[in-house]
Design a binder for these strands. Structure first.
Lengths: 133, 133
DNA sequence: AATGAAAGTGTTATGATATAACGGTAAGTT
DNA sequence: AACTTACCGTTATATCATAACACTTTCATT
């Protein structure tokens, strides 16, 4: 892991829930999990606060098109995120954008736009779902 | 224009509001505009229904990260959309993804993912705002 | 013109997502 | 200990989006 930051109890609980899920969950879906409620988290704000911190640490990313949150599946990072989202099983695959973001930044520059960050979401069908029709 | 589809009154009102605005507006911001209310549109659902149609026609696009909608500034299209969004003045610049989406589709394919569509949002500073600091 | 299908509309209610405001607590500086 | 900073619990509220139902308009086809 890049940088061991001590997470608070609430943050650990939310992080564990997302890691276990292996797919994006909305804040309210997290809130409804038994393992979360049993740990005393019972208000939306409690979840959102934990998520906010986890996103700042790059351990969780937000999927805009789903209004949901997903555990980062490799090194935590704040770098531009990109996701493939299966329309069938809802699984997500995160991929790196190092090369892509450079070319997009250049493209933006041609429009006089100074790029600060980017967010890419690709929808479609994952390998398992595509082969199963 | 690609295909002249006759818009209903509600759809025309919403389309005109977005075109006039020249920046993304939320459904409720549209609803609150005088020009919209004066035309008798007074319920959220009325706005959402018009937006749904306009998006299907490719004349309006949704900006996920803002929960807002923006008028398409060139040929209406259903093609993968990409936007640069100024964090200062909130203006958006839409750009084409024909070359980009091909390379992303190829990238996805390497992960066994069959791409259906994509949505790219670049945040940063537009030329005017960047030069004004 | 009659008729029937499809799309659009108005209205009310509700669901889903997210944050504001306030006061209190925990943990680490110095 | 005093101070700072982050975190937390609670209540209320803001914001975004859709369900359900009955009615109307539009328009191709008979």
């Amino acid at each position: 892991m890049a940088k061991e930051v001590k997470l608070t109890r609430n943050q650990q609980v939310v992080m564990a829930a997302l890691t276990d899920a292996g797919q994006p969950l909305s804040a309210y879906q997290i809130l409804d999990l038994e393992v979360v409620r049993d740990n005393g988290l019972k208000a939306p704000l409690t979840i959102y606060r934990a998520l906010e911190k986890l996103m700042a640490l790059g351990q969780v990313h937000r999927i805009e098109s789903l209004n949901a949150f997903v555990a980062c599946d490799h090194e935590p990072h704040a770098e531009p995120a990109a996701f493939m989202i299966c329309q069938d099983c809802r699984c997500t695959i995160e991929f790196s954008t190092t090369s892509l973001s450079r070319s997009i930044a250049r493209h933006a520059g041609q429009h006089g736009f100074q790029m600060a960050g980017m967010h890419l979401e690709v929808s479609g069908h994952c390998e398992a779902c595509a082969s199963a029709h």
